[in-house]
C-alpha cells in the first residue's frame, strides 16, 4: 500500500487505532492523515466515540452504586 485514500484509511481505522498495522502501512496512513483534514477529523471522532461509549458506562456504574435491596434479598433467598 504505497498510496492510500480516505476509503482505505477508514476501512482499516480499527486496526490503525489498535496498532495492529505493519510499520509500512502505518506510515502511509500517517502520511495521508497529514494531508487530509477530513480523515483527521474522522479519526478523532472515531476515537471519541469509543471514549464516549466507555465513559457513559463508567458514569452509569458510578451513579448506580447499590443494587436494589429486593434483588439482593431475592438472590440470597434463591440460594437457601
Amino acid at each position: 500500500m504505497s498510496h492510500v485514500t480516505c476509503i482505505e484509511l477508514i476501512s482499516f481505522l480499527d486496526a490503525y487505532v489498535a496498532e495492529e498495522l505493519d510499520a509500512e502501512t502505518r506510515t502511509t496512513f500517517d502520511l495521508h492523515l497529514i494531508v487530509c483534514p477530513s480523515c483527521r477529523a474522522y479519526l478523532a471522532s472515531y476515537e471519541e466515540t469509543i471514549d464516549l461509549v466507555r465513559g457513559v458506562a463508567e458514569k452509569e456504574e458510578e451513579l448506580a452504586h447499590d443494587a436494589p435491596p429486593e434483588l439482593i434479598e431475592a438472590v440470597k433467598h434463591v440460594k437457601r
Binding site: 480516505c6 476509503i7 482505505e8 477508514i10 483534514p37
Partner: peptide, 9 residues
C-alpha cells in the same frame, strides 16, 4: 476514494 462528505471535528 475520498469521503463523500468531509468530516468535521
Amino acid at each position: 476514494g475520498h469521503q463523500q462528505q468531509s468530516s468535521v471535528g
